Structure formats: structure tokens, C-alpha cells
Simulated scan of single mutants.
Amino acid sequence: MKTDRQLKQEVEEELDYDPAVNAADIGVEVKERVVTLLGHPSSYAEKIAAEKAAQRVAGVKAVVVEMVVRLPSGDQRTDEDTASAVRAMLRWTVGLSEEAVKVQVEKGWVTLSGEVASPHLSHLATRTVSHMRGVTGVSNLISVAGGKAAQDIAEKIERALQRHAEREAKHIRIDVRDGTVTLKGKVGSYAERSAARGAAWSAPGVHAVIDDLDIG
């Protein structure tokens, strides 16, 4: 098992390796394999990239994000300008529309609400907005329309897990209730945990995913 010192070094190397991250913006602390990221990334997109970089390092049990976005002066926008830009981006994104997704902006933090046809579109809206200039954070309150039988959802997730990672699928229990999926069990790494969450979110009819997985 890697020591906390080894994990700290590897996380710092991964941050430095990632072209979407300026490693000088990010501080790293590790205690009992839990990584804490600190500092002031220059965009929300960089903040997300730093979090994902830390999650990719084998042996990391969890990632705590204590970073606060500090926009360069050239990227600062009024909330009105940011809201207008977000609406325009949604209008130009296939599958999304201003009518389906409502936008609220406060101090650069964008809150998305409304209703879309699938979890994929909900994630697409968040991903699109997350890479825009002037955005300091994104809250996704978008609901997913429609509903499917719990058994049907669980079977689709199980098949997806078997296609992506058969070994992990054997150790994951799936519970579905009213469109909310709860994942339980043990996986070998943060990457496997992320893959399981992705498989759950991709299933039609899923409105929310609760991740109770442990990393062994």
C-alpha cells in the first residue's frame, strides 16, 4: 500500500501532467489516503480537472475539494452577461434548449433547473456550462422526465457494468427506487468507482445516483 507521502507526490505529478491544470494554483494534502485539494484555480473548468486528476491516482481513497475559483480580471463578467452567455450556449447545444433548462447566476455561480428527457442531457448541460469563461461554479437541479420500472433500470446498469468491468460488477449491489439508484459494495480504485457511477447515470430513467461504494 502506498504511503501518504507517495500519494501526495503522485497526485502532484498528475496535476502537473494534466494540461488543463496549472499545478502552481493547487495545493495537495494527504492523510490516510484522503486527498485534500486547496488553492485558487483560475476557472471552474480547471477546478474540475484538478479533482479528476487526483481521482485518477491509484490508491486514493477519497478527494476533498477546498479550492475556490479566482477568476483573472480578463475573465470576470457580470451575472447578467454570464446568464446571457449560458442561455446562448444551451440554445446552440444539440438536445438542449432555453425552454427546457432554466438559468440563474449569482456571483458567477450558475444554477441550472428545469426538466430534460434523459440523464445524459442533464450532464451535457452541466459539462457545457462548466467550461465557460466567467463561471465560478455550477449547481445542477435539472430533473429527468419519465419513469421506468426499477427492475428494468437495475438490469440495464448491471449489463453496462459487465460490459465495462466484469470484475467490479460482481462486487456491486444495485438498488433502484423511484428513479434513484443506490450503489453499494467494494471496488478496487477511484477510477472503478467513477466507472460504476457513470454506468448508473447512463441508464434511461435514472434521476439520481447515491454512491455508497467503498474503495478496497
Rank of each mutant, 00 (worst) to 15 (best):
V57C: 05
V69F: 00
G74C: 06
T78A: 02
Q104L: 13
G114I: 02
K31V: 07
D25L: 06
E158Y: 14
M1W: 14
I157N: 03
I215E: 02
Y190Q: 10
A83D: 10
R177E: 12
E10V: 04
V116G: 01
H164E: 11
M1G: 14
V209I: 01
I172Q: 09
V34H: 04
L112C: 10
L124P: 08
Q9T: 11
G39H: 05
V11G: 00
K156F: 05
R159W: 05
H164D: 10
A24H: 10
N140I: 01
I142F: 00
L141G: 14
I153W: 02
L96H: 00
G95N: 08
R87A: 11
A53W: 03
A154H: 04
T111H: 11
T182Y: 13
S97Q: 04
S130Y: 14
A149M: 06
Q6A: 13
M67Q: 01
S42P: 01
V176D: 03
V21M: 10
L7K: 09
V206F: 06
E106D: 14
D152G: 03
M67F: 06
A88M: 15
K184R: 15
D18P: 13
G39C: 08
T78V: 08
D178A: 15
E115S: 05
A83R: 15
A50E: 03
A20C: 08
K170T: 14
P204V: 00
G205N: 01
T182F: 13
I174S: 01
L90Y: 08
V57D: 04
V110E: 01
E14M: 12
A23C: 02
